[in-house]
């Protein structure tokens, strides 16, 4: 009961903050809401006993990536959103596409959760034993055994992105 209460409170807060992120007037404020949002998501992970993921969420997203967002927003110093020529028809069309995507997502989520609800307990995590409190070691174990290839591929992808970023930056510096 308490857990459910906590979850729904958190979920409401997270959604509310998500709305604040997109609706805040000042770009810096909206980044701040994003940070709080991420922190609350981390709390959500903690309630799921996924402490490692929670801490990484804080470290990487709140502590790293959003700082860079903030950096950019601060430097650009947008007092208000730039006014751009907007084509009402384009707006309508893109709205249609987005609405379709959201609808499809909802259908998928609902149907899968219905099916998952029918599934037996314990298989939700995708492998044998459910996480207990000491999940860091298990996570590492799983990552480097069952998911070794996707893991390495992902890291390769990140490396490529990094090299690409440096090359792009360098080219501008050189000339």
């Amino acid at each position: 009961m308490a857990e459910a209460l906590l979850f729904y409170t958190l979920a409401a807060l997270i959604l509310g903050l998500g709305v604040m992120v997109v609706s805040a007037r000042s770009a810096v404020h909206s980044v701040l809401f994003l940070v709080v949002n991420f922190l609350l998501v981390a709390v959500l992970y903690v309630t799921l006993n996924a402490e490692f993921v929670a801490v990484i969420q804080v470290l990487v997203y709140a502590g790293g990536i959003v700082v860079l967002y903030l950096f950019v927003v601060m430097l650009v110093n947008l007092k208000q959103a730039p006014e751009r020529f907007s084509d009402p028809r384009r707006l309508a069309r893109s709205g249609l596409v987005l609405g379709g995507v959201v609808l499809a997502l909802i259908v998928v989520v609902v149907s899968s959760s219905l099916r998952a609800g029918a599934a037996p307990e314990g298989t939700l995590s995708g492998f044998g034993t459910p996480f207990t409190s000491g999940n860091t070691e298990q996570l590492g174990w799983v990552l480097y055994t069952s998911y070794l290839i996707p893991f390495e591929l992902a890291s390769m992808l990140l490396l490529v992105a990094m090299v690409g970023a440096i090359v792009l930056a360098k080219r501008h510096l050189g000339e």
Partner: peptide
């Protein structure tokens, strides 16, 4: 005594930078 104590310290101190930036 949480099992990710060290990571917890690192991640929480990384939040502290917001105070300075903001």
């Amino acid at each position: 005594d949480i099992n990710v104590g060290l990571l917890f310290i690192i991640s929480v101190t990384s939040i502290g930078v917001y105070g300075i930036i903001l």
